[in-house]
């Protein structure tokens, strides 16, 4: 992927800020793996952060999309890459969930990856079409109760936060819904607008443009309080299911053996990017927020989420479909 880069950089070298060339790392472009298709939330956040990083590190940050298998293909590719700081990955909750969801476990998030920094979080929303009979969560539940297992819902993939969030909520509500996995939020939304699947659970970032254009109708936000962007949409607690709040968090990870100095440098640059008004504004505009933390705290989050998901997945007996 990163061959021919000099030819291209020669043609366009005037585009990249020539700062920080004197320093040792980085001396070549950095590959940033994303486990979902381009145009989705993780991809957009990766590109936004990548843009900031390439400006401050003086080397282009190239986003490489490797969608499929609930980001396992991407994580595998990251783990198999040299741990030299030139291959990073923008991950979401799936990294914590997949170790329990997939059997045998494809990797160990505590052992195989090194946390760099948490980036932020965006709430999950449940949406349907404007003309759908399930115009509220209560209507959906009563419909699902009268015909168990017949209602489909689309998500960005197996083990994605929306998938797990809906499964857990459905169990609590005593209904059974059928999961249809996609390779990212965008194709899932198309099939819902097209009427192939009645419901979609995605993060707010992906659903908002279509909610605003009237093609999608968000019926519940799985956030703790009503979002300023979606004032008319009830939270999941208001619908009677407190405790089922779910948000997608995003963070930067590297292969486990990446040198400490590189992680420290990357962490510092990510903090700078998160402090910029542009990144904050982009996250806030979709009801999300940036969450600057230390690398250690992010590692603890990956671990605690893993423990939480392990319990939930075992209790709910979830399997990839």
């Amino acid at each position: 992927m990163n061959s021919f880069r000099l030819l291209l950089s020669l043609l366009l070298s005037f585009c990249v800020a020539p700062a920080a060339f004197a320093q040792a790392y980085p001396t070549k472009p950095i590959k940033l793996i994303v486990g979902y298709s381009p145009g989705g939330a993780v991809d957009i956040i990766a590109r936004t952060i990548g843009q900031k990083l390439s400006a401050s590190l003086g080397q282009p940050v190239l986003v490489d999309n490797k969608p499929g298998a609930g980001t396992n293909i991407a994580v595998r590719s990251l783990i198999d890459s040299p741990a030299d700081g030139y291959t990073l990955m923008m991950t979401a909750n799936a990294i914590s969930a997949n170790a329990s969801l997939y059997q045998p476990p494809p990797f160990d998030p505590d052992r195989d990856v090194a946390p760099v920094s948490l980036v932020g979080k965006v709430p999950v929303v449940i949406a349907t079409t404007a003309t759908s009979p399930y115009s509220s969560l209560s209507k959906l539940i009563s419909a699902a109760k009268s015909a168990p297992g017949t209602i489909n819902y689309a998500t960005p993939g197996n083990g994605s936060t929306p998938h797990l969030a809906v499964e857990l909520f459905a169990r609590a509500a005593g209904v059974s819904l059928t999961h249809i996995p996609y390779r990212g939020g965008a194709p899932a939304i198309v099939d819902v607008i097209g009427g192939q699947v009645p419901l979609v659970a995605v993060n707010a970032l992906e659903a908002l443009p279509h909610h605003n254009s009237g093609k999608l109708h968000v019926i519940a936000a799985m956030s703790t309080s009503r979002s300023s962007i979606l004032p008319g949409v009830p939270t999941i607690a208001e619908s009677g299911y407190a405790g089922f709040e779910a948000s997608v968090w995003y963070g930067l990870i590297a292969p486990a053996a990446t040198p400490k100095a590189i992680i420290v440098k990357l962490h510092a640059e990510v903090q700078k990017a998160l402090a910029s008004a542009e990144v904050k504004e982009r996250m806030n505009s979709v009801g999300g927020e940036v969450l600057p933390t230390t690398a250690e705290k992010f590692g603890e989050l990956i671990h605690s989420e893993r423990v939480r998901y392990e319990k939930l997945i075992r209790e709910a007996n979830l399997k990839p479909s």
């Binding site: 992927m1 021919f4 291209l8 585009c15 990249v16 843009q51």
Partner: peptide
Amino acid sequence: VGLLPGLGPLSTISLLLPLTYS
């Protein structure tokens, strides 16, 4: 890029995308 075996529009655009930010 089209002339070179192995390098298609997809890889080129993903390579060039970060360079077009400015």
